[in-house]
Each structure stands twice: as C-alpha cells, then as structure tokens.
C-alpha cells in the first residue's frame, strides 16, 4: 500500500515538475541515457519474473528486450521496474518508466483518460476460474453462491461482478492486494474459486502444493488483450514501440527466426529485404538504424519464438497458441506490412 501512495505522490510531484521528460522526447532520452526503463510484473511466471540471480524472463520482459535491441542492438540495455497493479499507470504517467510491459489489459478508459496509449496486443487473454477438482464443478455457470478470491486494483473484480450479475448468480468476492496472498487464501480454503486472467491461472497453479488437485474451468468470461503502453503525446516513441511489436509478428510470418536471420539477409524476397533493412530506409524513418528489425530478431527472436520460450506448450505453463497464433494459422495475431 505504501508503495502505491509513494508512487502516486511521486506522480503528483512529477506532474508539478512540469513533465519535463515528455517535452524532450522519450526516444532521445532513452538514447541519451543508454537504456530502456521498463515497467514489468515481478511475480508472474511466463510474463515477468526474475530468477535467483536476478535475471528477468517472460514474454513481457522479452518485449522490453526487443525494444532495447531495436534501439541499441543490445537486449541487455534494459532496466526493470517491478510494479504492482495499482502503481503501474502512475509510474508511466510520471516518467518513472519509458515503457509499461506488464500484462496490462487494453481498455477504452485506460486508453483515453489515463494519459497513455496502448501500442498493440502481445497476448490475447481472458479471465477464467480455477477451482479444486474435489468441488465437482465442470463449468463456471455452476459457481452460483461461490466465494471467489481475486486481486484488488485490477479489472478482475469488475469482470467477476459483471459475469455473476448477468447470470443472476450470487457470489462473494474476497479481494487481496497482492497475488501471493490471493493464492495463499485460496490454498487455505477461504474461497471456492480463484479468478484472474487465464494465463495467470496457469502460472499461479504451478505455485500450489498439489497443482494436479486444481483445474481451470473452460469459460473465459472477458476479453483481456494484454499489451505494452507508452505515454500519450509522444508519437515518435509510440511508433518505435509499436513497430517493434509488428516486426516480431512480421518476422514470424515471413519465417525469419533467431537461427536463420543471417542467411535470410541474403534472401531475394522483397518483404524480407525491407524488414531486415537491406532495402529501403524504414529504420531511419522511425528514428532508428535500418538494421533495427534484424537486431530484434537476432537478439530476441520472432513473436512465435518468444511465445514458445516463455508460455508455450513445451514450458511448464503449457499454454496453446490459440488466439495468439498468426492470422494465417488460425489465430488473430496480425501485423501491418512493412513497405
């Protein structure tokens, strides 16, 4: 709680300072200081979590690395700011971070009244429920009268209320500030169900004593397009971050991977040539060098590689591509072309 107030007060103080950060241009600032300050989740396996040595990993973390690679050609030029759900927007508004990449749902109110802009969707998610198998429930529609544990300061509470109200089911919500406590309370049996974004459920289930005693119900009760966000009013920086995401997706579509990017550089395919900077001046147009996308793929890989390495079927989380597959492969991930 204190941290929230501290960051809120910091936000106010910086607002007083006249938002001097925004005026200089985030891209120039980032280039001058030599690293990207990235706001991430400190405790969500597969999206943002540091290991014992302090090395961060996760899909959101890899996106920060991709942005750093695009600018510096070096994925290590990122500094991470661990943020909780309530602090994240203030941290971005105040200029404490350059980029918010913290499993954040893109919604209209956030996009329009918080002074920030979402650049796109890195992960199509939706809210779901986890229950004990011993409860004998196979659908969320059977949860009438259930006590549900959730995390406060997110859209989760609202979705939960909407779902139960629209199905005329009574429920009780027990809302904690931190995910750790939500999980502990759920495990202690305070609640029948645990709700958060489905990706989070898969990650949190691994932390339970007996993950196999718990199951995730099939219903997805909300649309949760998770994506990175930047401050409003800095179009240049917005473009850099946006096109980093598109480059990741285009690279997968064109079959360019971390392993074959060097040999693809000699490809005759004009689309690949434009992406990798051997033809045209697309990189300089966005304020970077022409090999920006080459650097991203070389250092971090394409979108599919990032997904598979962090949350895909071969990881502990074992999440299928589903909606997050490319549009050409049955999903809805689609990026505008580079030309």
């Amino acid at each position: 709680m204190r941290r929230t107030i501290v960051s809120a007060v910091t936000g106010i103080t910086l607002a007083l300072a006249g938002l001097s950060f925004a005026s200089a241009g985030t891209l120039e600032d980032v280039k001058a200081k030599g690293f990207v300050q990235c706001g991430v989740n400190p405790s969500l396996i597969g999206f943002g979590v540091p290991d014992e040595k302090g090395v961060w990993s996760g899909l959101d973390v890899d996106f920060c690395r991709a942005v750093a690679s695009a600018i510096f050609g070096d994925p290590t030029k990122v500094k991470y700011t661990p943020l909780n759900a309530k602090e994240r927007f203030t941290a971005l508004q105040s200029g404490e971070i350059d980029l918010l990449s913290r499993n954040t749902t893109w919604t209209m109110s956030r996009d329009t009244s918080l002074g920030l802009m979402f650049v796109g969707v890195t992960y199509y998610d939706g809210q779901g429920f986890m229950v004990r198998k011993s409860l004998g429930v196979s659908s969320a529609l059977e949860l009438s009268g259930a006590k549900v544990c959730a995390q406060t300061g997110t859209t989760t509470e609202l979705n939960l209320a909407d779902y139960f109200r629209s199905h005329n089911m009574p429920y009780e919500v027990v809302a904690f500030e931190k995910n750790e406590e939500v999980l502990q309370a759920y495990e202690a049996g305070r609640c029948d169900a645990y709700t958060t974004d489905a990706s989070g459920l898969y990650a949190e289930r691994l932390k339970l004593t007996n993950p196999d005693d718990h199951m995730i119900l099939p219903e997805i009760i909300s649309k949760e397009p998770l994506g990175p966000a930047v401050r409003q009013g800095d179009d240049k920086w917005f473009n850099v971050v946006k096109w980093t995401l598109f480059a990741l997706l285009d690279a997968e579509e064109l079959g360019i991977t971390k392993a074959n990017v060097d040999e693809k550089k000699t490809s005759d395919n004009p689309e690949i040539k434009r992406l990798l900077g051997t033809e045209g001046d697309f990189g300089t147009g966005v304020g970077l060098t022409n090999d920006w996308a080459y650097n991203i793929i070389k250092q971090v890989g394409n979108y599919g590689e990032i997904f598979d390495a962090n949350v895909g079927p071969s990881t502990k989380l074992g999440i299928a591509r589903g909606l997050n597959n490319l549009w050409s492969k049955g999903g809805i991930q689609y990026a505008p072309p580079i030309r």
């Binding site: 709680m1 929230t4 809120a8 936000g11 106010i12 607002a15 759900a85 309530k86 927007f89 203030t90 109110s109 956030r110 009244s113 918080l114 406060t152 300061g153 997110t154 859209t155 509470e157 609202l158 809302a175 500030e177």
Partner: peptide, 12 residues
C-alpha cells in the same frame, strides 16, 4: 479506494 482508483484512474 484502491479498486476505485484503478477502475477510474483518478489517482490524485
């Protein structure tokens, strides 16, 4: 208040 803050974004 934290939930209200998050849903509305009215931190100040």
């Amino acid at each position: 208040g934290g939930t209200v803050l998050n849903q509305t974004g009215q931190a100040v």
